[in-house]
Each structure stands twice: as C-alpha cells, then as structure tokens.
Amino acid sequence: MDMGILLSADNEVDFMIHGIFSYSFFGHQVWITTTHVCCLIVLLSLMLFGFLAGRKMKHADEVPEGFQNFIELIVELLDGMVDGTMGKNGANFRNYIGTIFIFILVSNLSGLLGLRPPTADYGTTLPLGLMTFTLIFFNKLKYQKVSGFIKGLCDPWVFWAPINVIGDIAVPISISLRLFANILSGTVMMALIYGLLSKIAIIWPAALHVYFDMFSGAIQTYVFCMLTMTYISDAMTTE
C-alpha cells in the first residue's frame, strides 16, 4: 500500500480482461480472453434456452402454463416494444431487436453470476454499434434512395456536409461507448468494493449488485435497443 489506494489496485483489485491463451493467426498473435469465454457461456446458455423454448412451442398447449407462459411473455413484451416504437415498420425488425435485447440483457446480468460481463469489453459493444450503423445506412439508401441521402447530407447548406458526416459517424461510437462505459463502471465499482473493502464486504454489496448489475444493465439494454429503433425508423422516413 505504499503507492496509494488507486495504484495498489493493480495487485488486489481485478476487473481487467485476462488473456487465457494465445495463438498465431497469419503471423499475428491473437489472444483468447475472458471476454470470449464469458460470451461463449452466455451464447451457449441462450442457445440451450432457445432450443428448449422451440421444442416446447412445437407442442404448445391451447392454454399456456409454466414455461410456455414465460416464453410467450418474453416474445409479447419484445414485440410490443418494437411495434410501439417503430410503428408499421416494426414487423421486419422484431427478430433483430429481440435478439440483441436478449443478448445484451443476459450479458449485463451475467455479472451477477461471477462472470465478467462480455459487454464490459469495447470489443463486444463496438460490433453492436457497427451493426446499428450498417442498418441505418442500408435503410437510408433503401428508402430515401441516393438522391435523398445526398440531400440529407447537405441539409441546410452544401458546406454543412462534413459536419453531417461527423454526426453520422458519431452514432455508432456514442451508443457503443454508452453501453460499454456503464457496464464497465459497474464492474469496476464492484471490483473495488470486493478488493479494497474485502474485510467488511459481507452482505451489503448485494444492494449495490441490484443497482449496478440489474438496474443499470436493464436500463442500458433498453436504451441501446430504443436508440437503435429510433435511428432506424428515422432513416426510413421519406419526405
């Protein structure tokens, strides 16, 4: 502890991404990290859940109960959210938004189970942001055509185009950084509490878990999906 609390954190507090093993990929050294492993655990459990849900729904009962009720509740909630935000265009995006919603939510909640949340790695959230960006760009070209796209770029004036381009590029960066920083701050906070206050961290950190992992994670999932939907339906509107 001779270097002060924050710098001694390197020895005791552990929230960093760790490399598990590395291999050579066309001459580059590539690491398999804890993020990959946690992401794989999340994906496998979601796949198992999806497999069970699909098998259950194949032999669905007339009057749902138990597990079937739960599946229908999830699907109805997600469909209602997408339809409520995107209106008549919603039907095409139910699958995509539902998938990323469930993935991000389970990733954020996986901090409760002792995993390092995969979304606390910028390598996970940046692709999510880039997927949103691709969808925005694709739908803009599809619905507004090239002429509308160029018109939107030089919106008030022709020389405003660079600023509009920067504004477009900022979208994936800002939504991925928002998700990443929120989950990372929760992870860091819990690691600091368990690392530096380990003598007195007995039961009360549970309340902080409820806030940092559950509340913050759920809100950020909702916000990510809402913003994706808003941007996409914005790109779909034609004058």
Binding site: R178, I219, Q220, V223, M226, L227
Partner: peptide, 9 residues
C-alpha cells in the same frame, strides 16, 4: 429514463 441515459453519455 431514455433521456437521462442519453444525457449520461
């Protein structure tokens, strides 16, 4: 909540 989350950025 949506507005607050965006303002938090």
């Amino acid at each position: 909540l949506l507005g607050q989350a965006v303002a938090e950025t």
